[in-house]
């Protein structure tokens, strides 16, 4: 295909690119510059980076974020994919079940955090249910061993329906003829999934994988509201630490340094994901 007409290109790409540069990249650059000035310093240095990397709390928050991401992303995508496959069929009230699963995404995140905080209270309804079933009550958000799991539960309750919706949209686009063809070949259910659904869903899955990874790196409202990173730093995600440093403690420069570190880490992870999910025809357009 020929190169695009520059005017047409400008019309199509210009407005969005301008918005992204002015409202996202420029302020990010400002943060990058901030991160090079130690408090009250007028010369650039790497002092802020030295400080955060020598701070055990920040080091721990990197570890917590890594563990959290390794669990929450596969978990959410697997459940979302299973639900999408389940709810892609015709069936009684299918729209209702989809709506109900997506609905938590519409509740203000602060309220979701509050209701789960109450639900998971040691004297709350979830423990009441466990005891009714003859099980031991659990400590949930008040235990260093269970708090991160509780946070994962909450963000998954919010997120699974959301990611499921993208996967449902992707499933809609798979041509029916492919299913018929493979069925004629005598493929079983697993083979159908493996050789038709999964490859056809690749672009959608790339989107969901990348977007979900990013979203989970950036989420912190439930942590901020429910645990402030505790107990013993067990839920102190990097983003929560950035918020605490920057907005609560007023240490802008180390918050900016931590932001630069976070964006760099996420960028590397995302680029690896692109590489893994890439197919040759993507660039042949």
């Amino acid at each position: 295909m020929r190169l695009a007409n520059p005017m047409t290109l400008l019309v199509f790409l210009g407005p969005t690119l301008l918005l992204l540069i002015v409202l996202r990249l420029w302020p990010a650059m400002a943060a990058l510059v901030d991160s090079l000035y130690a408090p009250r310093a007028d010369q650039i240095s790497l002092d802020n980076y030295v400080f955060i990397f020598s701070d055990p709390v920040f080091q721990d928050s990197l570890v917590v974020s890594a563990i959290y991401s390794l669990i929450v992303n596969p978990l959410q995508i697997a459940i979302a994919l299973m639900l999408a496959l389940l709810l892609n069929a015709k069936g009684p009230l299918i729209g209702l079940w989809r709506t109900l699963i997506l609905l938590p995404a519409a509740v203000p995140l602060s309220v979701s955090a509050v209701i789960w905080g109450i639900g998971l209270r040691p004297d709350g309804p979830i423990n009441a249910l466990l005891m009714t079933l003859g099980l031991e009550p659990q400590r949930f958000l008040t235990s260093p061993d269970q708090a991160l799991g509780s946070i994962i539960l909450i963000v998954s309750w919010v997120g699974i329906g959301y990611w499921m919706t993208f996967l449902l949209a992707g499933l809609q686009e798979i041509p029916k003829s492919l299913y018929e063809a493979i069925r004629i070949d005598g493929a079983n259910r697993w083979q159908t999934f493996r050789y038709v659904t999964l490859p056809q869903l690749r672009r959608t899955l790339t989107f969901v994988l990348v977007a979900n990874t990013v979203a989970n790196f950036l989420v912190f409202a439930p942590v901020q509201i429910l645990t402030q990173g505790g107990p013993r730093g067990s839920t102190n995600l990097v983003m929560n630490e950035i918020f605490t440093l920057g907005f609560v403690q007023g240490d802008r420069s180390s918050a900016a340094a931590a932001t630069v570190v976070l964006v760099t880490v996420v960028l590397v992870v995302v680029l690896i994901q692109f590489r893994l999910m890439q197919a040759p025809e993507d660039n042949a357009a």
């Binding site: 130690a38 701070d55 107990p231």
Partner: peptide, 26 residues
């Protein structure tokens, strides 16, 4: 919050003291 959640007070305060030394120096 950590102490309320059952962590040993001496350890928690020691860790917090360490962190505060770093933060207050700034």
């Amino acid at each position: 919050a950590d102490i309320r959640n059952g962590e040993p007070a001496a350890e928690v305060l020691e860790a917090t003291q360490q962190r505060l030394e770093g933060l207050l120096a700034r």
